[in-house]
């Protein structure tokens, strides 16, 4: 099973990249689950044609009990991708980090992986490693590989570095390892140079270079990924190639 957690600064395009990657895996015939781990709960919207799934935390809030079946909190999107959102409390209240852990343990209780038997699981995680809960997706048993999304912007690189450092801190723990960097271009001056420089210092490869693309925006306005919109587009091909790379490298033996 390939299990990937996608991290990066808030607003850098993690959900876009995760959804397109999910769509690519699905287009390549894989059974995919995407789990949005962000209180904003908008990770999977472009896989669902803009019809969002009820986040787990909303379910708990609304019904005041735990969901009894996966269908209560999951929805199938593009090519059968199973979409789940953890959701979270109203900003400024409560504990979003614990919400993620609670969702994971609920999914475990519902035997998600056993019942659904996915080939690929993608975790789309909030901005930065802000507290223990946001590191949950990289713990043993969840993701085994990490993608860090960054542009050449200073703050994006700063966040990328923080994430890499946090992951390195967990080196002895059998947590997920960083597979590489996805450069999501933002038309920053000397962007490639800056990102390459960071990647070299961190000892990480750049595994994909996503150009700034109006196609992405156009299809997102329609509630779609570019894979669903037009597989033949240059940018779509990049996502498909990235998915192939993961498949060729093989996931963990579970």
């Amino acid at each position: 099973m390939i299990k990937i957690a996608v991290y990066g600064k808030g607003g850098i395009g993690k959900s876009t990249i995760t959804s397109n990657l999910a769509a690519s895996f699905a287009a390549l015939g894989k059974k995919v689950i995407q789990i949005g781990c962000d209180p904003k709960a908008d990770s999977t919207t472009n896989l669902l044609n803009g019809n969002p799934v009820m986040p787990v935390m909303n379910y708990l809030r609304e019904y005041d009990r735990e969901p009894e079946k996966i269908e209560d909190i999951a929805k199938e999107g593009f090519k059968g991708i199973l979409c789940i959102e953890t959701g979270g409390p109203t900003p400024g209240l409560g504990c979003a980090g614990r919400g993620i852990i609670t969702t994971f343990s609920l999914l475990e209780d519902l035997k998600l992986f056993k019942k659904y038997q996915p080939d690929v699981v993608l975790y789309d995680v909030l901005g930065d490693v802000v507290c223990g809960g946001f590191a949950a997706p990289i713990r043993e048993g969840y993701a085994s590989e990490i993608i860090i999304v960054t542009s050449g912007e200073k703050m994006a690189l700063y966040a990328a570095n923080n994430i890499n450092t946090a992951v390195n801190n967990f080196e002895d723990r059998g947590y997920a390892k960083v597979k590489g960097i996805v450069m999501n271009r933002r038309s920053v001056e000397r962007e490639e140079e800056k990102v390459t420089d960071f990647a070299n210092k961190a000892g990480l490869p750049i595994i994909a270079d996503i150009p700034r693309s109006d196609d992405i925006i156009r299809y997102e306005d329609m509630g779609k990924t570019v894979i669903e919109g037009d597989k033949m587009l240059h940018v779509s091909q990049i996502f498909l190639k990235l998915a192939e790379q993961f498949i060729n490298d093989g996931g963990s033996n579970e």
Binding site: M57, L60, R61, G92, G94, R98, G99, T102
Partner: peptide, 10 residues
Amino acid sequence: TETEAIMGDD
């Protein structure tokens, strides 16, 4: 409860 704490259900 845990849910109330997570949600900050004041």
